[in-house]
Write a protein that binds this DNA or RNA. Sequence first.
DNA 1: CGTTGGATTGGCT
DNA 2: GCCAATCCAACGC
Length: 206
Amino acid sequence: MIRPGRRLPRWFFERPSPEVAPDLLGRVLVRRLPDAATLSVRIVETEAYQEDDPASHSYRGRTARTEVMFGPPGRLYVYFTYGMHFCMNVVTGVEGEGSAVLLRAGEPLEGLDEMRMRRGVDDARALCSGPGRLCQALGVTRTDNGTDLVAGNALSLHAGMPVRPGDVAVTPRVGIRSGIERPWRFVRVGDPFVSRGRPARIARPS
DNA sequence: CGTTGGATTGGCT
DNA sequence: GCCAATCCAACGC
C-alpha cells in the first residue's frame, strides 16, 4: 500500500498547468465522506488546460461555471457534462488566471468495495479509469466545486510517490475539438489504470 | 427565450 | 468501432 505522505502545499499548484499536470502523476488523492470508509487513489493520468487554450472552459473568460478556475490555486473545479457525468480539476496558476489540471484516471488504493458500490462494477481497472468514472467512484459532484484541497477535509492531495519523467508519456488530449496540437495529456507509461482512448506511446525526452 | 453541442460512458454492431 | 443517453452552459436572436 502506498502511503499518502505529506499534504501538497499551496505553492505546488501555483505553477502553469502543463507543469503541474505531469507532477500530479503518482500523487495520492484522498476522499473523506461522512459515515463512509476513507477512499484514496493514485493519480495515473492528467490533462492541462489554460486560459489562452481554445479547448479550455476558461478560454471565453469568467462565467458562473468557470469562476472557480480563475480563483486561488489548490481548489477543485467540478463541472457537469453530457447530461450525466462530473469531471474534476485541480485549479493551478496564480489567482486570476484561468488554468487547471483535469484528473482523468487513478489506481484505487483504499476503499475499493465502496467504489465498487458507487460504480456498479467489479474490476478494479474499471473503477477510476476515466474522468467521469473517477468522480463517480469517489462520490464527487457539483457540491464539491470550489473545495480547497490544501486546507479542506473532504478532499486532499498528498505527496505519494512521483513518477519519474522517463516514465511519463505525453499525448494529445482526449475528446476536444480544438487545441489538439497541444500535447498536454500525461500518463504513467504502461499503467493498467489509465482510461480508454489511445494508449500513450510518445516517450518524453528525459 | 430557443438552439447547440459537450474535457464521457456503456452497450451494441 | 459506433452511437444514444440526458442535462445544462454558452451563445444568438
